[in-house]
Design a protein around this nucleic acid. Structure first.
Lengths: 230, 230
DNA sequence: CATTAATTCAAACGAACGTTTGAAATCGGG
DNA sequence: CCCGATTTCAAACGTTCGTTTGAATTAATG
């Protein structure tokens, strides 16, 4: 059909499998996705997946790793930049939150063809019960989380560290759920189902950021006074 | 062995299956849990599950339904009470948030033997990709969500309704993730793994509530000015 | 106690799963 | 062009899955 043959449409097998796996894992979850489905969508032979990745678990890890690597390196770079710009003074909490969560939404949306897909996958993966996923995610996030935790400690010297960690936890939850975008409870009644995902993200970032910073800077609960045990 | 026979330890088959299913679905997810595992843990015959519930999907729905029924009825009751007490005046946002999310944590923690388990299951279920779960949850939550949405609209007359819905969404996410309690990223470094869950919840509620209300009442983002489409 | 209904049980069904195999096809450098 | 390495392929492996079956057992009823 095509007169010229320089349409570089054909990606190599490895990449086709990763893209298909990313999409299927997002749609059906890890356990709900079979290797046959992935290779079928990718248009490659079933055995190719095990040949290139070794196992289904290793495939899942590579799906997550190739994107998280980019995102977390950017997170560290932006935080370094911000700290250098501040010249020793502690950063504003909003800057830290923007570096961490803003990077996620921006980088993932930028990466062509699959950014939105990966965001949803990540949002659903972060509560996955599989132990190998939990272990992998913990290792993949360890460095960047430690860096941001310390930055928040310096940024909020009057807030107990324990409280900061809890609120980081809450921020992660709000973000994960928002980017998962399942809207299981049909709360957002006028959502576009299959399109408009990009414009969704465009509006999502400032909304989410306001919410997160509002929560992070909220008055401390009474419990901080009560003893934790006995 | 036992002289008297009035130890009512032996629950009926149906309930044993539900309890085991709740625990296994929480630990391994829906797809990661087999009927053989559930009936094995319950100590009943494999076929008993299909006899009493018909299918694995129906079993999952009943696991969710029996707890959500209690929680959502209590949510409606408390909101009615609060509105009656206010006598026509709009409720404070913090009261509404407390009725919705506080009820979840309190009722679930009260229900003997399984409250904590169900909380985790619910937190992980709310992002589950299975369509039958999504459909079921949406139906189960429809009434109570609509009631609370309207209450929030009245409570925050100066905040655009669209923004309120988004923030409700964020609050759901923060809560779901917190109660799922996976801590996949090992953020809370000093968490007790297998015990202390109750004391966790005790401290969780006031912390979470402060965060949610802080986020809900945060300054509006700039985006509220920009037009949503073209 | 007899009869009917409800429940439990061991066994089996076909389908789908992740992975492996060994031969065929394709590719890259000399 | 040839040959060793890489990649693709159809086929099959053994296992586990959700569900069904029909007989055996227990419970309920008159």
């Amino acid at each position: 059909m095509s007169k010229t043959n320089f349409d570089q449409t054909q990606k190599d097998t490895r990449e086709r499998i990763l893209d298909a796996a990313e999409q299927m894992f997002m749609q059906n979850g890890y356990d709900g996705t079979s290797m046959r489905l992935v290779t079928g969508v990718a248009g490659v032979n079933l055995a190719a997946a095990n040949y290139h990745f070794g196992s289904k678990e290793a495939l899942m890890q590579e799906v997550l790793r190739r994107r998280l690597e980019v995102i977390n390196q950017e997170r560290l770079r932006l935080l370094d930049e911000a700290e250098a710009r501040a010249g020793g003074k502690p950063l504003k909490p909003s800057v830290i939150v923007e570096c961490f969560f803003g990077t996620l939404l921006r980088v993932a949306a930028d990466q062509k063809a699959g950014g939105e897909t990966f965001l949803k996958l990540l949002g659903r993966t972060i509560t996955d019960p599989s132990s190998f996923i939990r272990t992998f995610m913990a290792a993949e996030y360890a460095d960047v989380l430690e860096r941001y935790k310390q930055a928040l400690f310096l940024s909020l010297p009057n807030v107990p560290k324990e409280e900061i960690v809890w609120r980081f936890h809450f921020m992660l939850g709000a973000t994960s759920y928002a980017i998962a975008g399942t809207d299981t409870l049909h709360l957002v009644t006028d959502w576009q189902v299959n399109e408009g995902a990009v414009s969704q993200s465009e509006n999502l970032l400032p909304r989410l950021m306001s919410f997160l910073i509002g929560g992070l800077r909220a008055p401390l609960p009474d419990t901080s006074v009560a003893p934790p045990a006995k």
